[in-house]
Structure formats: C-alpha cells, structure tokens
Design a protein around this nucleic acid. Sequence first.
DNA 1: CCAACCTTGACACAGCTTTGATAAGGTTGA
DNA 2: TCAACCTTATCAAAGCTGTGTCAAGGTTGG
Lengths: 126, 126
Amino acid sequence: MEALTIHEAAETTGWTPRMLRYIERIGLIEPARTESGYRQYGAGELQRLCTLRELLAEHEIGLGDVAFALRLRRDEALSGAVDSWLEAEPQRPETVSADEWLRWEQEKHARIIAALTTNETMETAA
Amino acid sequence: MEALTIHEAAETTGWTPRMLRYIERIGLIEPARTESGYRQYGAGELQRLCTLRELLAEHEIGLGDVAFALRLRRDEALSGAVDSWLEAEPQRPETVSADEWLRWEQEKHARIIAALTTNETMETAA
DNA sequence: CCAACCTTGACACAGCTTTGATAAGGTTGA
DNA sequence: TCAACCTTATCAAAGCTGTGTCAAGGTTGG
C-alpha cells in the first residue's frame, strides 16, 4: 500500500483535512510531499493518526500537550530544566511548631527583609 | 527563616497573590496551610517560585506546559502512551518511486478500500 | 472589637488555540 | 480543456489561559 492524499487520509483516519494540516503545522505528523507539493500519507502516518486520536481521547490531553511532549524530547536543555524544577518538588517544610512560629511572628518586617535578601541570593545563584 | 503569607510570598517572588493561587490550583506549588487555612510559603516554595519564573521566561513555555510535564511524571500510563506514540515517529516511508506510484495510482478506489480495511485492523490492534 | 489580613467564589477581559469556511491559484487525469 | 483535486493564506467563531478585581465572610493581633 502506498501514499494517500490529504482527503483520503482524512476519511481514513477520522480527522478533517484542516486538522491534518494543523497537526502537521505543530510538528506532530509531517507527511512527505510530491514534487508539486501534494501531501502523501503513507501507512505509517495513517497508523500514527489513528493512535493519536486514541491517545488524546483516552488521556484527556490536547494536541498542544503532545506537541509539548515532543518539544521536551527534542530540546534536551528544556527537558533538563523542567525535570530539575520538578525534581525539587517534595522539599516542603513541615507545619511550623507553635512557639517557633511565635518567635518569628514578632517581627514580620524583618522577616520580609530577610526574605528579600534571600531572594536576591536566589536569583543570582540560580 | 519560616513561612510567609501569600502577600509576602508574592512580594518576595514577583508573582501576584492571584497567580500564587492559580499556580497552586494547577498543582505546581501547594504550600502548607495553617489550621485556619492560611497558606504558608516556606523557603523551598519561594525558591521554586523564583526558578519557575526563570523556567517560563528562558524557554518560552507556559504554566500549563509545566503542569503537563508534572502530569507526565506522575501518570506512568500517560507518559508511557505519549512516549510510545512519539517513539514511532521516524517511521516515514521514502518518497515513492515513480513506477511503483503509477501502479498504485491506477485504482485509487481500491486503495482507499484497502486503507479502510487496514484501519480497522489498526484500531482493534491498538 | 476593629483594622488588616486571610479565605473561596464569581465575573470579566485580552490573547491564544483549535477548528471551520472560503478565496485565489496550481496540478492532474480523462 | 475541464472537473476535481491539491496548495497557501485569511477571516471567524468557540473555547481555554492567564490575570485582575471585587464580594462575602473567617482569623488575628493590638
């Protein structure tokens, strides 16, 4: 089996031609082209278009989400940055003990100043 | 240093209180609460709020994208499905050779029927 | 007890995403 | 040559995101 045109591929997969162009524009499925520029959808593309619909439906995600996942996989710097941000997550301080809280509550202003200073450190350090 | 209120944390990190609530709602940073329900932002949260701004700015992504990355990391089934969909990507058939194309071009209708049959197989197989 | 916080919830609005429709023009096969 | 495709580009509508603001009400410290 060989390549189908965009309308044939649309009928086959349940997308509209419009959406196939959109899916291409966001980088998810980029079919080959004939010399004159017509899109050619092969068996692989048809497969992926079908499973793409299932993926979106079954997990309640959008095309943009899949596009972002693709970007994550292609941009090593991005995925590293996101991962390391997510990594730091469980670092949550326990609920404050009552007296410790009181001690600090006494000078709210000093706390904010301290926080601001810490923040500058954070910004330059990061 | 101990916990800050939402307004203090906002001033410290450059977000607005509104946005801190939004960031919490989409699951990115969920501060502890006092017994009466006030949010308490600790050093860890302040850090993460600052680096979150950098992350968004430096990589041109949105809060929703980070939220999706978090979802990917928490939902193993989801990340597996997305990954395996993306994995199949490079499978693109080469541009069709001229005579092979001609042979197929001769009965367009048969091609579509064949594709539809293949599609049914695909759907049940996936 | 009051000012100054905090909470949730709702309305609103600009801007982006997703999708359709339509126009102007090129390709192709009978 | 002509019908039936294809292409890109544009306008448009519906919905979601990110953000502000306001209201009604609880908490807290002086």
